Simulated assay, not measured.
Amino acid sequence: MTLTHPAYGQLRQVTSTAAVLLADNPGQMTLEGTNTWILRAPGESSYVVVDPGPKDKTHSEAIARVTEGNIALTLITHRHHDHTGGIDRLVELTGTPVRAKTAEFLQGSDATLVDGEVIEAAGLHITALDTPGHTLDSVSFVLQDAVLTGDTILGSGTTVLDSSDGTLADYLVSLDRLAEVGAGRALLPAHGPDHPDLEPVARYYITHRHERLAQVREALRVLGPDAGAMAVVRRVYADVDKRLWLAARSSVQAQLEYLRATQP
Rank of each mutant, 00 (worst) to 15 (best):
Ser16Arg: 14
Pro225Ala: 15
Gly123Leu: 05
Arg12Val: 13
Ser138Lys: 00
Ala214Tyr: 07
Tyr47Ala: 04
Ala231Asn: 10
Ala186Asp: 05
Ser109Ala: 12
Ala72Thr: 07
Glu218Met: 04
Leu106Thr: 07
Pro6Thr: 11
His59Gln: 11
Thr36Val: 13
Val233Ser: 05
Val142Asp: 01
Val14Cys: 10
Ala72Phe: 09
Leu220His: 05
Leu172Thr: 03
Leu113Phe: 08
Leu244Arg: 12
Arg99Glu: 01
Ser45Pro: 05
Ser251Phe: 03
Gly86Phe: 11
Leu244Ile: 01
Arg217Lys: 13
Asn25Val: 06
Pro132Asn: 08
Thr67Tyr: 06
Pro196Ala: 12
Glu257Val: 00
Leu246Asp: 14
Ser60Gln: 13
Gly43Met: 10
Val147Thr: 05
Val20Leu: 14
Gly69Ala: 00
Arg65Gln: 14
Leu175Ala: 04
Ala111Gly: 00
Thr131Trp: 08
Leu259Glu: 01
Glu92Pro: 06
Gly224His: 12
Ser163Ile: 03
Pro54Val: 03
Ser109Met: 09
Arg249Phe: 00
Ala183Ser: 13
Phe105Met: 03
Asp176Arg: 13
Val173Ile: 10
Asp170Ser: 14
Thr77Cys: 06
Ala254Asn: 10
Thr262Gln: 05
Tyr205Asn: 13
Leu154Thr: 08
Thr74His: 08
Leu187Val: 08
Thr112Val: 15
Leu31Pro: 01
Arg79Gln: 13
Ala72Glu: 15
Val139Pro: 04
Val232Glu: 07
Gly85Ser: 02
Gly192Lys: 09
Asp194Arg: 00
Thr77Ala: 07
Leu39Gln: 08
Leu161Cys: 10
Val118Asn: 10
Met1Pro: 08
Gly133Lys: 03
Arg212Gly: 11
Asp239His: 07
Val160Lys: 06
Ser163Glu: 02
Gly166Gln: 12
Arg99Gly: 01
Ser16Tyr: 00
His81Ala: 15
Ala103Pro: 06
Thr262Ala: 00
Ala229Glu: 07
Ala100Arg: 11
Leu172Lys: 06
Gly182Ala: 08
Asp130Pro: 04
Leu223Ile: 09
Val50Ser: 09
Val173Thr: 13
His59Phe: 12
Gly53Ala: 09
Met1Ala: 14
Val91Ser: 11
Thr167Tyr: 12
Asp145Ser: 14
Thr34Pro: 05
Lys242His: 11
Lys57Leu: 13
Tyr8Pro: 02
Gln255Thr: 10
Pro97His: 12
Glu257Lys: 08
Arg40Asn: 11
Gly116Phe: 09
Val216Phe: 05
Val181Thr: 13
Arg249Ser: 06
Val181Asp: 04
Val201Lys: 03
Leu113Pro: 10
Leu198Tyr: 02
Val173Asp: 08
Ile63Glu: 06
Arg260Phe: 12
Glu218Asn: 07
Thr4Ala: 13
Thr159Arg: 02
His125Pro: 00
Glu61Arg: 14
